[in-house]
């Protein structure tokens, strides 16, 4: 899905490296090997086009100086990779998908950036006819639940039921 533009997914090199260099992921996510060839990170020159560096510098300064998250009332604390992801999504107008509320809060609060839930992405693929929902794919929803994934937005759950006719068994 990262190699086929129709799926509309991108990621950065740092995320890819994290996924494949962590030893523990080998057993926890056996599918990672299967999908390795399908995941492709944006090349550096592509990421760093436009205003990427401007956004990254702004984000770094804001984080270091200290900005309060209005929801948690705590200072935002983003890692170097979080900052790269945030800069990439805002600079290139990508919607961000993340399980980290603090990262999502940051791009929404500071940059009016847009986020999308994993189920929202799946729904879009189904809607575009890129995937056909079946029992095999349905089992992924149960995996999400087992892996303690975030509850998906009600709006997307409703949309999922409507477009697939399947019962929603995920979080």
């Amino acid at each position: 899905m990262f190699r086929d533009d129709r799926y509309g997914c991108v990621t950065i090199q740092e995320v890819l490296q994290e996924l494949f260099r962590t030893q523990k992921f080998k057993t926890k996510y056996p599918w990672r090997t299967k999908y390795k060839s399908k995941i492709k990170a944006l090349i550096k020159s592509k990421v760093e086009t436009g205003d990427f560096n401007l956004y990254l510098e702004a984000i770094r300064n804001i984080i270091v100086t200290g900005k309060i998250n209005k929801r948690t009332k705590r200072f935002f604390s983003l890692s170097y990779i979080d900052q790269q992801i945030a800069a990439c999504s805002i600079a290139h107008g990508f919607k961000l998908t993340t399980v980290d509320d603090d990262l999502a809060d940051f791009i929404r609060q500071e940059f009016s950036g847009k986020t999308i839930s994993p189920l929202g992405i799946v729904n879009d693929w189904i809607k575009k006819g890129l995937i056909k929902w079946d029992d095999d794919l349905q089992s992924i929803l149960e995996d999400w639940d087992k892996c303690n994934e975030h509850p998906q937005p009600k709006k997307e759950v409703k949309r999922f039921k409507k477009i697939t006719g399947f019962k929603y068994t995920g979080p």
Partner: peptide, 8 residues
């Protein structure tokens, strides 16, 4: 813990 990202 609720406001620390996984990466952080």
């Amino acid at each position: 813990i609720d406001s620390i990202t996984i990466s952080k």
